[in-house]
């Protein structure tokens, strides 16, 4: 449970980064959300064997991290946390897809390995972009931006509640698990049985809490609508930010920049 507590603390740190002040932080959240969306769509729209064309996209996270003064190692560690999931997703590609796709010197690389590498690179780019978005905007502002961009309010409210109570619930889970561990005296306790009962209790407690929160909302005149008042301004700099990055992403998507660069270099030095 210690690791979960740590993960939550890390999440808080990511959110606190959003309080910094930089040219990127000051932009309207909608601009940042839009650019991140275009970025992610461009990345995931590539074919499964595409690898070289993905690398130029690293310019986006690199520039934003530099401009917004985010800690790059911290972001890298956050992305690394997701690596096991990515590896599971791509694990069987090299096994099933053995057709040789390219040769690196005398070394033959199968299509499976290329698609595996492509999955890893794409995950790093998309997950990294999402973390950076939260780091320069803050989760709440991202939700509100999504809502203003047309996402139904129900989803925005769900996300906000999830974010608000994830801290409370992980603390509760951490306490329950600590209590179990202390009485298990270093052994397994009752093993999976005690864990399933613990999870059941947590679920019931969550339910009760949800009821109390609903009660508190009703007590303050809640009728189903959420009114959040935010001053935001989508001005010239936002427009430039969106247009500039989107044009670059779409250009990179349509033209293989790595190949262009390669041709340029080989053309210059035949």
């Amino acid at each position: 449970m210690d690791s979960i507590n740590k993960a939550v603390l890390d999440l808080k740190r990511l959110d606190l980064l959003a309080n910094n002040d930089s040219s990127i932080h000051r932009l309207d959240a909608r601009a940042k959300v839009l650019v991140t969306c275009v970025f992610i769509i461009c990345i995931v729209s590539y074919g499964r064997y595409e690898l070289a064309a993905l690398f130029p996209f690293f310019i986006f996270p690199a520039v934003i991290i530099a401009l917004a003064d985010l800690p790059p190692l911290f972001i890298a560690r956050k992305i690394a946390l997701l690596c096991p999931f990515v590896l599971v997703v791509g694990m069987f590609n090299p096994v099933f897809d053995r057709e040789v796709l390219l040769h690196l010197g005398s070394f033959a690389v199968s299509g499976g390995w290329v698609s595996f590498a492509s999955i890893v690179v794409r995950s790093i780019l998309t997950v990294g972009a999402a973390f950076i978005l939260v780091g320069v905007t803050g989760f709440t502002a991202v939700c509100q931006a999504l809502e203003r961009l047309g996402m139904p309010q129900v989803f925005a409210v769900q996300l906000l509640f999830l974010y608000r109570y994830i801290f409370v619930l992980t603390e509760e889970a951490g306490r329950a698990s600590r209590a179990r561990e202390l009485r298990a005296c270093g052994k397994k306790g009752l093993g999976i049985r005690s864990f399933s009962s613990l999870i059941g209790h947590l679920l019931l407690r969550t339910w009760q809490r949800a009821e109390r929160i609903h009660m508190a909302m009703l007590a303050r005149g809640f009728t189903g609508a959420f009114h959040a008042h935010r001053q935001s301004h989508f001005g010239k700099s936002e427009l430039m930010f969106v247009l500039g990055w989107s044009t670059l992403f779409i250009f990179l998507r349509l033209q293989n920049a790595s190949q262009l660069l390669g041709k340029l270099v080989t053309g210059l030095f035949p």
Partner: peptide, 25 residues
């Protein structure tokens, strides 16, 4: 009504939003 556990009562993203929740409603 002020509830026993303030975590049940404070459900909005910031203190301002929370205090403004009732008046907006």
């Amino acid at each position: 009504m002020v509830f026993q556990d303030p975590d049940d009562q404070l459900f909005m993203p910031t203190v301002f939003d929370d205090v403004a929740f009732g008046p907006f409603n």
